[in-house]
Design a protein around this nucleic acid. Structure first.
Lengths: 144, 144
DNA sequence: ATAATATACTACTAATTTAGTAGGAATAAT
DNA sequence: ATTATTCCTACTAAATTAGTAGTATATTAT
């Protein structure tokens, strides 16, 4: 049950933006370099994040990307849904017609529980929380 | 974050076995038919479940498959791990060397939380629980 | 013994998805 | 004008997943 690089890269990229000053745009190139991601590939992921309204872009020289909302207004679940094409662990959760057994399928019940557990975690964390956590970690480093 | 059919099919198959009388073997063909799975494909999944010790088989005429342990001794997490090749949402959770940033990567922390949530759900459910649930559902049907 | 019924094993193939590349167009700053 | 950047579209490569095929082996029943 691996996450796609799509989701992994996209999440890391938007965390970079959340950690970045919201006034100065951060260039794709820089994010790609810092996160060791193919710039061309990341470009496509940014399109997705942009059209979903999480980031905005400034074109041309000195352009780049910015977080479009306050980091405490963006839940990880939102980003996750936007990146990971399929939200559900199994098709039949969203689409009951997918399988005729759906209505009384115990396996489906289990996968629903799993999915809800995932949702709960991701809904409970905002980008702000992630940024705070990162800062906390760094503060800890200095104490050593 | 879709589950592989491997996991979905395998889980449904072993639930069939758990629902079945533990004395009489259930044939692959029957499971495949009931669950609408390619018999030849399921065959390969049964090998996996067998070598992991969850099911045992009886060859030859009147043969088939049986649950190898009491259903209350098999947690869904065990089956899940055995079927779903990769247990972790991201490689770096198990293998810290996979990425040099791992040690202080906040994304990694998030995925770890997600993974733990999944584990918790699956560890809390045994095959017996699933069987009981299925029976409960059927009992409910009759009342209508 | 032989036929019938099952699982066991190995190898191949097809389909789908995922990841990544390429190249140029549009836009903005200097 | 030149440079730096995002934007857009299409293509390609790699990997994974799902499924098929055929043969070997074991067991039961007649």
């Amino acid at each position: 049950m691996k996450l796609s690089t799509r989701t992994r890269y996209g999440m890391r990229a938007i965390i970079e933006l959340a950690e970045n000053d919201r006034k100065r745009p951060l260039q794709l190139k820089v994010i790609a370099q810092r996160q060791d991601i193919s710039a061309k590939y990341l470009e496509q992921l940014m399109v997705v994040l942009k059209s979903a309204g999480f980031v905005r872009s400034i074109r041309g020289a000195k352009g780049g990307y910015l977080l479009a909302k306050a980091p405490n207004q963006i839940k990880l679940s939102d980003i996750f849904h936007c990146l990971e094409g399929t939200v559900s662990t199994v098709e039949c959760i969203e689409n009951e017609d997918y399988c005729k057994r759906a209505a009384d399928c115990v396996a489906r019940q289990v996968w629903t529980q799993v999915q809800e557990a995932i949702e709960n975690v991701l809904q409970s964390i905002t980008l702000q929380d992630v940024v705070d956590r990162a800062k906390g970690d760094k503060a800890l480093d200095y104490q050593i």
